[in-house]
Design a protein around this nucleic acid. Structure first.
Lengths: 201, 201
DNA sequence: ATGGGATGCGTGTAAGCACTTGCATTCGCT
DNA sequence: AGCGAATGCAAGTGCTTACACGCATCCCAT
């Protein structure tokens, strides 16, 4: 039961309850991991009866999997333009990718970490989570190969892709250790160091 | 009871049982996390009775904390030479640090990940785990400041430290996504890109 | 040989967990 | 009005878990 607009109270739609449960599940899962997440607590936080949760998802495992899928639903939607092909300016290409990747990863930092840590006991979440980044990595490698053949960048494409993505990855993941400058700054600095570093000064 | 050498079977010392329990705890903890780690399984793997485990550590929480401390006991032992001060060659300084850091982090990759992921529910392990890296980070920052004042490197010391350590960090943590070249190669490449990148070509 | 410390062993307990079931209720739709 | 789908509610089941306790056993130092 949820109050909606200026009308009287109406019943939430099944879709609504479903997404409320998924959101609650995520909030608790990133705090406590799989074993630490109890169906009771999820139901409570979603303001839903525990039985309803099971009626929707069958069991806890399926719930968590649905939660992962839900979180990654719109991954990589705005990457098409970048990967259409090399444009004139490598620096601005990379900067665009950097900003998008930084924001995308930051929005799911907690899930990314948990999926890495829980990988040995539950590869499901890991696989869902890393699908898009893997694609990006491969595409970026191809991008460097192409740009390389045009003489726009130097160095091994695989190593370059590894390092460039690694720089972004490290910034998002290690923010609690290394502090948190804003993403624009990081993106600029990354592209700068990187292109300079591989000899595009 | 453990057979030792060609002599007859002798009883293991308390110290011995203690470390056996700690090792078993680590093996299971990195696979299953805190909630997933059961005292029964740890005891089993350590070939020790469950009661013995409690007699040694009191409770599960204390056991895990002891395990973290034990794992970090010898952290940063061979960093003194590096941080004695700037030597003639920045590149070889950094390369030395890189190789040591890469090996150190790789040996504890699983624990590092888990400590990051479990941070919100249990900062204890996190704090133990990240003590040395934090120190390294600060010292590296100071190193860059000093080297900078001598005109050996350019750029903001904090940003430089962040980026350099970030590159290493990303390589160890992301190895399953980005593949795993060997550490010597990574160290060389990192120092190279980095120094080039900040303008020390 | 003997006493004390460390360990094994079994049993027990109280709590928490995923998941089920049967029934009452409420809302939207025709 | 009335049907059906979605939900609430309460009680329960069977399993696992951390942790406690009492007692027997074994080793080592005196």
């Amino acid at each position: 039961m949820i109050t909606k607009g200026s009308e009287s109270t109406i019943k939430a739609s099944p879709e609504d309850t479903r997404t409320r449960i998924l959101e609650a599940a995520r909030e608790i899962y990133v705090l406590k991991g799989f074993r630490g997440t109890t169906t009771r607590e999820v139901a409570e936080r979603a303001s839903v009866n525990e039985a309803t949760l099971f009626r929707h998802f069958g069991n806890k495992e399926a719930l968590i999997e649905a939660m992962f899928k839900n979180a990654c639903e719109h991954d990589g939607e705005n990457l098409a333009e970048f990967f259409a092909g090399t444009t004139a300016d490598v620096a601005s290409d990379l900067r665009l990718l950097a900003v998008q990747a930084l924001h995308g990863m930051a929005a799911k930092r907690d899930l990314i970490l948990i999926s890495l840590a829980e990988e040995p006991r539950d590869p499901t979440g890991f696989n869902i989570m890393w699908k898009t980044p893997s694609v990006v990595f491969e595409r970026l490698q191809a991008y460097f190969a192409q740009a390389g053949s045009q003489g726009k960048v130097h160095g091994d494409p695989a190593m370059n892709a590894r390092f460039f993505m690694g720089m972004l990855f490290a910034h998002v993941m290690g923010r609690c250790i290394f502090g948190t400058p804003n993403f624009e700054e990081v993106a600029d600095y990354s592209v700068d160091i990187f292109l300079n570093g591989i000899g595009n000064k």
